[in-house]
Amino acid sequence: MTSDGEPRPKDGAACFLQVFENPLMAVHYHDGPRQFVPGLEALHRMTGILLAERVPSDARILVLGAGGGLELRALAESFGGWRFVGVDPAAQMLKLAEATLGGDAARVDFVQGYIDDAPQGPFDAAVCLLTLHFLDEAERLRTAREICRRLKPDAPFVAAHGSFPQEGPEKALWLSRYAAYAIASGADPEQVAKARDAVDAMGMMLSPQRDEAVLRQAGFSDVSLFYAAFTWRGWVGYA
């Protein structure tokens, strides 16, 4: 819910929220990203490096889609002076994030909700990993603009999510690679097939070109690709 009591976003992402609110999903959540996202730990390390180029040692970082806490834990362990605001609409996933962080949870203010529920800042940086692909293009643009508005001038923003060609045989090829990687990483083939079909049917995925255009349209400059792994892409840009 947003601060005014209205559910957001009002699109297909709502069904995914129901999945993440399932306590059983939260228990097993950490297995999924590791099996489906190539180089997940490296992505977290690269995110920290990109932020550290421009933020102070006592930086305050906005993390949107913080449920589960994997990126929060990686950043907190590597940068002992940073503090965080972790925002996520799923209460169960925020509980998991707090448990994942252990003692470092004291350095995080957890907020249940969407970008509208986040403090106004200004923040020294922002991160949104494995999240924006749940939003359609209009809501993705609005969310990115709201993130940009909460940042100090020239502050870095790191975004990484599903992003791959969305037309014809090329889309099917990348989805097959997405599934093959997960199976090779130990995921259950039946569950992988369901995940592949769900991604195929989402209707909210964008091509890398459109994703980068959204970030630029939202107000970020010097947007550059730093991560590409099968169906996943990551960018850094500056407010």
Score class of each variant (00 low, 15 high):
Gly80Leu: 12
Gly80Met: 14
Trp82Ile: 07
Arg83Tyr: 11
Arg83His: 12
Phe84Trp: 15
Phe84Lys: 03
Gly86Trp: 00
Asp88Met: 06
Ala91Thr: 08
Ala91Asp: 08
Ala91Met: 09
Gln92Ala: 11
Met93Arg: 07
Lys95Gln: 15
Leu96Phe: 02
Leu96Ser: 09
Leu96Asn: 10
Ala97Pro: 07
Ala97Tyr: 00
Ala97Glu: 03
Ala99Leu: 08
Ala99Gly: 08
Ala99Met: 02
Thr100Tyr: 05
Thr100Met: 11
Leu101Pro: 01
Gly102Trp: 03
Gly102Asp: 07
Gly103Lys: 11
Gly103Glu: 12
Gly103Cys: 02
Ala105Lys: 05
Ala105Trp: 04
Ala106Ser: 13
Arg107Phe: 02
Arg107Val: 01
Val108Met: 02
Val108Ala: 01
Phe110Leu: 02
Phe110His: 05
Gln112Met: 03
Ile115Trp: 01
Ile115Val: 08
Ile115Met: 05
Asp116Gln: 12
Asp117Ala: 15
Pro119Asp: 04
Pro119Gln: 03
Pro119Gly: 03
Gln120Trp: 01
Gly121Ile: 13
Gly121Leu: 10
Gly121Asp: 06
Pro122Lys: 01
Pro122Thr: 06
Phe123Arg: 14
Asp124Lys: 04
Asp124Trp: 05
Ala125Glu: 03
Ala126Trp: 05
Ala126Met: 08
Ala126Glu: 10
Val127Pro: 00
Val127Gly: 01
Leu129Thr: 05
Leu130Glu: 03
Thr131Asp: 02
Leu132Ser: 11
His133Ile: 09
His133Asn: 07
His133Leu: 10
His133Trp: 12
Phe134His: 15
Phe134Ser: 10
Phe134Asn: 07
Phe134Trp: 06
Leu135Lys: 05
Leu135Cys: 06
Leu135Ile: 08
Ala138Met: 07
Glu139Ile: 04
Leu141Trp: 05
Arg142Tyr: 08
Thr143Gly: 12
Thr143Ala: 14
Thr143Met: 08
Arg145Phe: 00
Glu146Ser: 09
Glu146Ala: 14
Glu146Leu: 12
Ile147Arg: 02
Ile147Thr: 06
Cys148Lys: 11
Cys148Gly: 13
Cys148Gln: 15
Arg149Ile: 03
Arg149Ser: 06
Arg149Thr: 01
Leu151Tyr: 06
Leu151Asp: 11
Lys152Tyr: 11
Lys152Ile: 07
Pro153Cys: 04
Pro153Met: 14
Asp154Ile: 00
Ala155Ser: 14
Ala155Leu: 09
Ala155Arg: 08
Pro156Met: 09
Pro156Thr: 11
Pro156Arg: 06
Pro156Lys: 13
Phe157Gln: 13
Val158Cys: 15
Ala159Lys: 04
Ala159Ile: 12
His161Phe: 13
Gly162His: 13
Gly162Arg: 12
Ser163Ala: 14
Phe164Gln: 12
Gln166Phe: 13
Gln166Met: 14
Gln166Glu: 14
Gln166Ser: 01
Gln166Arg: 08
Gln166Ile: 13
Glu167His: 10
Gly168Cys: 09
Gly168Ser: 07
Pro169Asn: 08
Pro169Tyr: 03
Pro169His: 05
Glu170Thr: 01
Glu170Cys: 06
Lys171Arg: 14
Lys171Val: 07
Ala172Leu: 09
Ala172Trp: 03
Ala172Cys: 07
Leu173Thr: 14
Leu173Gly: 10
Arg177Val: 07
Arg177Cys: 14
Tyr178Ile: 11
